[in-house]
Design a protein around this nucleic acid. Structure first.
Lengths: 233, 233
DNA sequence: CAGTGGTCTAGACCACAAG
DNA sequence: TTGTGGTCTAGACCACTGG
């Protein structure tokens, strides 16, 4: 160990990472407390604290008051995934975006959708189907339900120019949501919209978003064949 | 505004979130600088700084030195995804885990795999196929390549008792990786392993991991029908 | 109870970029 | 040039929890 002059939280984080990777501090092992590390690195405890908190957040350390800090036994890696507006996703690839509305109706949903939306039996929701296209080719089929009692404004929008995806992102602040990824075989209407054969494997993203304890919307996005989601760890 | 007595960073973060959601600070708008906010909330600048940094990290604010802080125009939401060991994923569902090795050979990979592994033409890699099972039912098919020049120890492991997935996580520290999610139609060998019909839509996770600029391993996990990845936003 | 991490403070200096 | 965020410090108190 070199007793260098540096003392930024980045330096501390990097060195601790190195010691973990090099097994100088093996999985499960206690590491020195913040005061000792601060002395070793020649910096304030707050600096060490910041570095260690980041590492704990990344899943590499387990920290508990009084018990101290130890190297995580099973470093559960966490990936971060960006959830962009579809138009931006397409434009970022250098393609031109286009959208067409397929259907817009007030409907009583089936039991599955009703449960996800936490709406009451018999209540009508706004149902919208649309197609997102990239340079003329089908990109994703959007099947969306909107809770009109939480979002009465949506009833006034016709969604023929702007997709519900974009209208919601720009106009409706939300607090949280659930996302699910899965794979399905194309059904007849999806196959038709996405210009593929029935039975083709398609990537599906389902999302519900909520604010102040109300479900605002549920969307099922079915992507054209070949779609991939990419992230780093 | 109530001039409350509270002054934790959580309080500040919550209040700023509220103002953004309530459009008191509309998208694109500048917000007061840290000194002013600290005075308003009756706390130190460092406390405000911590709250605002978290919000910027979450994508709700854009901050730049000298230019100040403004509400993000298109709040790109970021989801966090845990990447568990498959055995843990299965056991967390209350099922019993089982693993069987299907194949283990040193092979020269095809061009696609060679490119992903950044290995040289003609060099043999360790190729392993195995099946993860949950309470007797097929769960995921693992198709893995290991770079033996970066991980010579792997040549000594037979992987009949422990899956490469688990051996790697426990024994090989890595610095980063790429992850891709997609959907495919089951090919003959996958359909056989996963007890489904050829052509069934399957969820696929591909992952490469690296350390000190070397690709360590590339894995393609093909999950049994019905698999879903879930996360929150 | 006592030792650990979690947080807050007041003040300081630095790095960056807009004007 | 100058105002902004980014960071570090020394010290303090609090909150939790293991022994």
């Amino acid at each position: 160990m070199t007793r260098g002059e540096t003392c930024s939280w980045q330096t501390v984080e990097e060195e601790v990472r190195r010691r973990i990777n090099a097994r100088e501090w093996p999985p499960g092992e206690m590491i020195p407390n913040e005061v000792d590390l601060a002395e070793e690195f020649g910096c304030a405890r707050a600096t060490v604290n910041r570095a260690l908190q980041r590492l704990a957040d990344a899943g590499l350390l387990d920290r508990r008051r009084r018990a101290g800090t130890r190297v995580a036994l099973h470093p559960i890696r966490k990936a971060r995934l960006d959830i962009p507006i579809i138009r931006h996703e397409i434009e970022a690839k250098g393609l031109t975006y286009n959208y067409s509305l397929l259907s817009r109706k007030k409907l009583v949903p089936n039991a599955g959708v009703q449960a996800r939306m936490q709406s009451e039996a018999g209540v009508r929701l706004l149902h919208i189907e649309g197609l997102h296209m990239a340079s003329g080719a089908p990109y994703a089929h959007e099947n969306r339900w909107i809770n009109l009692s939480a979002l009465p404004d949506a009833a006034k929008v016709d969604f023929s120019q702007q997709s519900p995806n974009e209208w919601l992102v720009l106009n409706v602040p939300f607090e949280g949501g659930d996302i699910t990824f899965s794979a399905i075989s194309a059904r007849a209407n999806e196959a038709a919209g996405l210009s593929c054969e029935e039975g083709t494997a398609l990537f599906v993203v389902e999302r519900t978003t909520w604010a102040s304890k109300h479900i605002l919307t549920y969307v099922r996005l079915t992507f054209a064949p070949g779609y991939r989601v990419h992230t780093e760890i």
